[in-house]
Design a protein around this nucleic acid. Structure first.
Lengths: 366, 366
DNA sequence: ACGCTAATGGAAACCGTTGTCAGATTCACC
DNA sequence: GGTGAATCTGACAACGGTTTCCATTAGCGT
């Protein structure tokens, strides 16, 4: 048998109809509405199609005519290695893919690296809608997506007027962490966060950069921390925040190093993601700091590995996040008001948080 | 500013041309060939487009005319949770996505769960080519892909006459593991493998099922083990092989339990993936077996977590695998002969393999 | 003023379908 | 044989673009 020879010129619905001596409609019906023609004729059509190597109606032409692409686009301007190496992001991807699979539509990953300003890929994507995941509010790709006349759902960030969105209540979630630490007695804390804007800054963060961050989620989390710690009598202006552009365990470690080198009096390192927290843990170990006796470390996301090592973190349902976004997009008939879905989060106290070391307790090698 | 109002009827290139009093050609040129019209006119076109809320040429119509979809399809009939939860699979995905990004084309995940026999999604996917990753040779989706008149590249399996393929040399790779174990002195071994066919069988595997496996990779690995151990004087027919349909750590554990319950004399458990090996390790711990003193465990793939815990395994370059497949597909101009690319593998001896416990050495609690 | 070339914009064919609607055919039944 | 219903079929108009010629105009040297 083998696969059919690829003829010089592909057979089309029209040529097939001609060969059979029937109209194009009939051939089309043979594929799309079997009840509209006699079984016998249908059999003949399909058989001739096989003989001619006709692969069935062209999907693109069909899409054009039916105005349905049968796919949803996914825009994530992050570096791809981020999307695939952070279990939290992979979870979102999985959830989204599951929702698409349920609906029988494809998931189209739009090529858009952070560097490339080339927005053409967004315009070229034949999709019925977009899911936008965690991009800065000033991203040109995002703007291009919003220009397209298709429904859009944003996951996490940015938060845009009039656009459907799904994400956790970041402020509340971070509040739980802050409250936990405050209750434990921590007053000297440091923060490690992910990138705040499209320009790289692997360094401490100024107050203006904090409040002007283009990544809504990171900004919200920092603000929530500021509120909580201020309420506990801590001067937020004095709390060091270190930013990392890339999102890897190693970057978390280097950030922790920078933070602890400059502020050795810190008793707790708050990280805005588990990946960064894993890095902070590694750095603590390197320094001979016991966790949590000498240093408390907290994360955010609740990835599997965090759970395995007992990291204190806030868990958010990443798979649900992706699934919900997908369903929301796929169900967006003529909905009137834009929807914002907030997912629940849960503080998971692990083995990496405890009361701060006391002042007279020797901190580092005596 | 806000996003433009969505008019009742979308503006088209034609309506824009009418509004401007120019031909469609000119509008098209304004977008696609700026050098073909005066800058002044182009400015006017673009400006009017903005005013009318015209989002630029429709991607689907463009695809139809240019016969380029600007996307490659990815078919993996596995359960999606498999694809996203096995780091090895995620690595392949990442590599493929990177290759697509480099070429500026989208990556279209085709919805195709193992259960659903609905092949329509394959027909409906507007793509310029397909990458097929690890599907059984008798999968209907695969057949549908091969009917489509676009280039196809297969990763890992199946191995099909006339179709490009990229994958490791599984036989050689497994041979390294086998040789390692034989050299250490193991003669009583057991195997845990992934699914061998589309029908579930969470049990021991018969000889016929082994040789008739529809997953080429698993079959090859088993055959290579058979050859190597037979050469070392081991009767392969007496070597128990346990199969698991799902590919999770828990399944690896349950398989190990089943294996060790029935064959307590086994000194080494060979797993055809790291994920399964991690499960076997967990089961060993549960039984109080020390690894490698009481039991040797080996994996396959070389995922990060395996490296962290020092699992003896064969590393294959998963990211490269995906990237290579993508590049191969995208470069497939009028290539004459089908290409088969074999990727290098490397035995990584870790802390989970050692010489077998001696007979008189107490094995379990004395 | 003339002819030549280059720049610019337009006409029309084409990409491969689907869907509507009216007309044709068949068939049972009186 | 006539009639109405049921079943098929085919013509035609979209769907929204791109691209290959052509025609027109403008620029310019002589």
């Amino acid at each position: 048998m083998g696969r059919p020879i690829r003829t010089r010129r592909q057979a089309t619905l029209a040529s097939l109809a001609a060969e059979l001596g029937v109209s194009r409609t009939t051939v089309s019906n043979a594929y799309n509405r079997p009840d509209q023609l006699s079984p016998e004729l249908r059999r003949r059509v399909l058989e001739t199609a096989r003989r001619l190597g006709y692969p069935g109606p062209d999907p693109v032409a069909r899409s054009l005519r039916t105005r349905k692409a049968g796919a949803v686009g996914l825009l994530l301007t992050e570096n791809l290695s981020y999307a695939f190496r952070d279990p939290a992001a992979v979870g979102v991807l999985e959830g989204l893919a599951l929702a698409c699979e349920d609906a029988g539509v494809g998931l189209h990953l739009v090529p858009a690296s952070p560097g490339r300003e080339d927005v053409a890929a967004v315009h070229r994507a034949g999709v019925d809608g977009f899911v936008v995941y965690s991009v800065p509010d000033d991203d040109p790709h995002l703007a291009a997506v919003l220009e397209r006349p298709v429904p859009t759902v944003i996951i996490d960030q940015p938060s845009l007027e009039g656009i459907d969105r799904v994400g956790p209540d970041d402020a509340a979630a971070v509040g739980k962490i802050a409250e936990h630490l405050v209750t434990l007695g921590h007053r000297q804390v440091g923060v490690i966060c992910m990138r705040l804007a499209r320009e790289r800054n692997d360094d401490f963060v100024s107050a203006t950069r904090q409040s002007g961050a283009h990544f809504h989620v990171q900004r919200t989390r920092l603000e929530a921390l500021a509120v909580a710690f201020s309420a506990a009598g801590v001067d937020w202006a004095g709390v060091p925040v270190v930013e990392r552009f890339d999102h890897t365990v190693d970057d978390g470690a280097s950030a922790a190093r920078q933070l602890l080198d400059a502020y050795p009096q810190i008793t707790a390192v708050i990280c805005t993601s588990d990946i960064l927290a894993l890095g902070a843990m590694a750095e603590a170990e390197r320094r001979g700091l016991r966790v949590p006796q000498d240093l408390t470390v907290t994360g955010f996301d609740g990835i599997a590995e965090a759970e395995r090592i007992g990291l204190t973190t806030v868990h958010q349902p990443v798979l649900e996040k992706g699934k919900t976004a997908g369903r929301l997009l796929l169900s967006s008939g003529e909905r009137s008001a834009p929807k914002v879905i907030t997912l629940p989060t849960e503080l998971r106290v692990g083995r990496t948080s405890g009361p701060p070391r006391t002042v007279d307790e020797p901190w580092f090698g005596g």
